[in-house]
Amino acid sequence: MSRDTALVTADWVQQHLDDPHVVLVEVDEDTTAYDKGHIAGAVKLDWKTDLQDSVRRDFVDRRQFEALLSQRGIGTDDTVVLYGGNNNWFAAYAYWYFKLYGHADVRLLDGGRKIWELDSREVTDEGTTREPTSYTAQEPDRSIRAFRDEVIAAIGAKNLVDVRSPDEYAGRLLAPAHLPQEAAQRGGHVPTAVNVPWSKAANDDGTFRSDEELTRLYEAAGLDGGKDTIAYCRIGERSAHTWFVLHELLGRDNVKNYDGSWTEYGSLVGVPVAVGDDPGPAGGG
């Protein structure tokens, strides 16, 4: 993968607004944002109600994903362009999710909703109706998704990158007060994980930094290019942003997103936890 195949600009989107095989999909943390205004022709995916199983803590399965995309009018061969607020956090999460289920041509709008708004481009509150399709998904690609046991095994052995803010990494901040349901039992980070906040990979306007800047960023953080990498945050959306940078923009092969992230790890019984600003020894403390 590379920047040319994974990212599109706002101008590119503008030029393809009437292209029937380009489907714009908005995904936001604030799931009401779409209803207040979106790019003309865009359909909405709700990261909670559409992309999470309603009973188990897991993704919807392949059949459910096929039914969802068919209903939204997204074809197996369509070019899917994802965008959203919060500097594309949830759009990047959806991108990773589409890749997990093997969608061939999926891209991110560089800068997301913010660049579109800062450019004063047109939005609409009119709903989008697309003809239903018969979407075919692939079996989930486990090579890009990490689970908890793999994270524990990676301590001191693989690259672990914690992309939360420094205060969350250190354990000084568990969860913002308005999101108590997403708090873990303990604060801190996975021992030996380095802290590279997701925001360092983005410019103020939400676009990604250049390949050269990104390469320097992860080199300076001590991410060993020869080792496998697992990225995590709190619920896997900010780390999907970093996964996108490492795997899609910089073309690193062995990068996984741990979507269980700190809400899972920080609630596990008996695993090592490190607190403070340093990665810490493998045994935690």
Binding site: E29, N86, W89, L173, P176, A177, H178, L179, E237
Partner: peptide, 8 residues
């Protein structure tokens, strides 16, 4: 998510 909400 980020410790902030749209304010009034």
């Amino acid at each position: 998510m980020c410790g902030a909400t749209v304010g009034g």
